[in-house]
């Protein structure tokens, strides 16, 4: 089981190394979305500082959503998803490997980019650790949840908008606790409660999402 998990993880990481666009594009998207906000609301430093946590989190949501569309697409098109479904290994473990690989490719870089955008949006330096911690837990959860939607819509020709419709409402708790943890630090309040909630959400989605993803992948072939 562990061997199959590693096999999927290694294969997907190797594929990502050979195809740069898959992981570079969501990153660029993230930066562009964030730079749109000052252009939209004006360069007022104080205003930007106030809405920065929300901007960064909404941009992360959208970047994760955008990236998750490709999660199962290539495997579906070339038939290797079928082979994963037909493997005698537990499908939920295999999809967990796929989601982890996908997060390492598209979620983790966001984390490293976040201090940069925090500075650009005038956040205080002491908020950056909280921002990164919340993004770590939050984007993992988002990737797991988005994968459910990606699995449900992978067989559909026009899955993109539908995926957003299915998944964005489910992102709301992560958005709330993610941005509130940064706001807490900005306001000088303790951040533990917010991060604990994000951790709880992550554990819950880690336990349940692989089952839902596996179930969804079985039905799309019917």
């Amino acid at each position: 089981m562990l061997e199959a998990f590693n096999a999927v993880l290694n294969r997907d990481l190797r594929l990502a190394m050979r195809r740069r666009g898959d992981w570079v594009n969501p990153l660029v998207f993230f930066v562009i979305v964030i730079s749109l906000f000052p252009l939209g609301v004006g360069p007022d430093t104080e205003l930007l500082r106030q809405i920065a946590p929300g901007i960064i989190w909404v941009a992360s949501l959208l970047a994760t959503l955008l990236a998750s569309e490709t999660l199962f697409r290539a495997d579906f098109d070339d038939g290797s998803l079928e082979q994963l479904v037909l493997s005698s290994q537990p499908l939920s473990v295999l999809v967990l490997a796929k989601v982890l690989a996908h997060w390492l490719i598209t979620g983790l870089p966001l984390l490293f980019l976040s201090p940069l955008v925090a500075v650009v949006l005038q956040l205080q330096g002491r908020s950056i650790p909280a921002l990164m911690a919340s993004l770590l837990l939050g984007t993992l959860t988002l990737s797991l949840v988005a994968a459910i939607g990606a699995a449900l819509t992978v067989g559909l020709r026009k899955g993109g908008v539908l995926l957003a419709l299915l998944v964005l409402p489910l992102f709301i708790p992560v958005l709330i606790f993610g941005s509130s943890s940064v706001l807490a630090v900005e306001g000088g309040f303790p951040v533990q409660a917010h991060l604990s909630m994000l951790g709880a959400l992550f554990l819950l989605s880690l336990a349940l999402a692989p089952l839902a993803i596996a179930a969804s992948l079985r039905i799309i072939y019917e």
Binding site: L170, I172, P173, I176, S180, L204, A212
Partner: peptide, 24 residues
């Protein structure tokens, strides 16, 4: 079946969404 799975995912999320919105 896809809709059924989504409904179950949704029902797990509804209380979470509800309480997180209240907290917010």
């Amino acid at each position: 079946k896809a809709a059924a799975i989504l409904a179950l995912v949704g029902v797990v999320n509804i209380p979470i969404i509800h309480y997180s919105v209240e907290w917010w």
